[in-house]
Measured scan of single mutants.
Amino acid sequence: QIFVKTLTGKTITLEVEPSDTIENVKAKIQDKEGIPPDQQRLIFAGKQLEDGRTLSDYNIQKESTLHLVL
């Protein structure tokens, strides 16, 4: 699982696999929060994550925290 922290300070927990794409993660966030993926920007280690890449591409491991910017 990974954590996604929103600007409001809320933390969302997501069940993911390293092979999941960023697009996939955004879809999971939409399921939980109702935020359309095209409004979501995910930041990890100061980098904006691209939809077509996977979590493992960015070396995002379990218990990692991503930041969600709208």
Rank of each mutant, 00 (worst) to 15 (best):
D31Q: 15
D57T: 04
L70G: 10
D51S: 08
V25S: 00
I12K: 01
T13N: 06
I22M: 04
T13M: 10
V25A: 02
T11F: 09
V69D: 07
T21H: 04
K10Q: 10
E63A: 10
E33D: 05
D57H: 11
E23P: 03
G9M: 04
P37L: 13
Q30T: 10
Q61K: 12
S64E: 09
T11E: 06
Q61T: 12
F3G: 03
E17K: 07
E50I: 08
I2F: 03
P37S: 14
R41L: 13
S19I: 07
D20A: 07
E17T: 10
T6E: 04
K10L: 13
G52Y: 11
K62Y: 15
V16F: 12
K5R: 12
K28Y: 07
Q39L: 10
A27I: 14
V16L: 07
T65L: 10
L7E: 15
T54D: 03
E23Q: 13
L7T: 12
T13I: 13
N24R: 13
E50F: 06
S64P: 03
A45N: 15
L68M: 08
Q48W: 14
L49Y: 00
Q1H: 15
E23C: 14
S19P: 03
G52L: 09
K62D: 15
T21R: 08
P37A: 15
S56T: 11
L42V: 04
Y58N: 03
I35F: 11
D38P: 07
E50H: 08
K5S: 08
I22C: 03
D31A: 14
H67R: 07
G52M: 09
H67A: 07
L68C: 03
T11W: 08
G52P: 07
P36V: 05
L42S: 00
K26H: 02
K62E: 13
L66Y: 02
T13E: 07
G46M: 04
D31E: 14
Y58Q: 04
I12H: 03
P36C: 09
T54Y: 07
Q30G: 07
A45M: 14
D51C: 06
H67N: 09
T21W: 05
L14C: 04
N59M: 08
I43M: 13
L55R: 00
L42R: 00
K10E: 09
T65C: 09
I2L: 08
K26Y: 03
D20E: 09
E23Y: 15
D57G: 03
K26G: 01
I22G: 02
E23T: 09
L55D: 00
L14W: 01
I60A: 02
G9A: 04
G46E: 06
Q40R: 02
I35V: 08
S56G: 11
T13G: 05
G46D: 07
D38F: 12
T13P: 06
I29D: 00
D38S: 13
Q30F: 13
K28I: 06
I2T: 01
I60F: 03
L55A: 02
P18V: 10
T54L: 09
K10C: 14
N59I: 04
T54H: 06
P18W: 15
G9W: 03
S19M: 11
S19A: 09
I35T: 07
D31L: 15
E33A: 11
G9N: 06
D31H: 12
K32C: 11
L66P: 02
N59P: 03
D20V: 04
L14V: 09
K47C: 13
D20F: 06
G52V: 07
G46T: 04
P18N: 07
R41P: 01
I60P: 01
L66S: 01
I43W: 15
D38N: 11
K10Y: 11
G46N: 07
I60H: 01
L42N: 00
D51F: 04
G46V: 02
Q1M: 13
E17A: 09
T6A: 06
I12F: 10
E17M: 12
K47P: 02
G34D: 05
Q30L: 09
H67Y: 13
Q1G: 06
S56M: 13
N24T: 15
P37D: 04
I29Q: 00
P18L: 14
L7H: 15
Q40D: 01
P18F: 15
T6Q: 07
I22K: 00
D38Q: 11
K26N: 01
D31F: 12
Q48R: 07
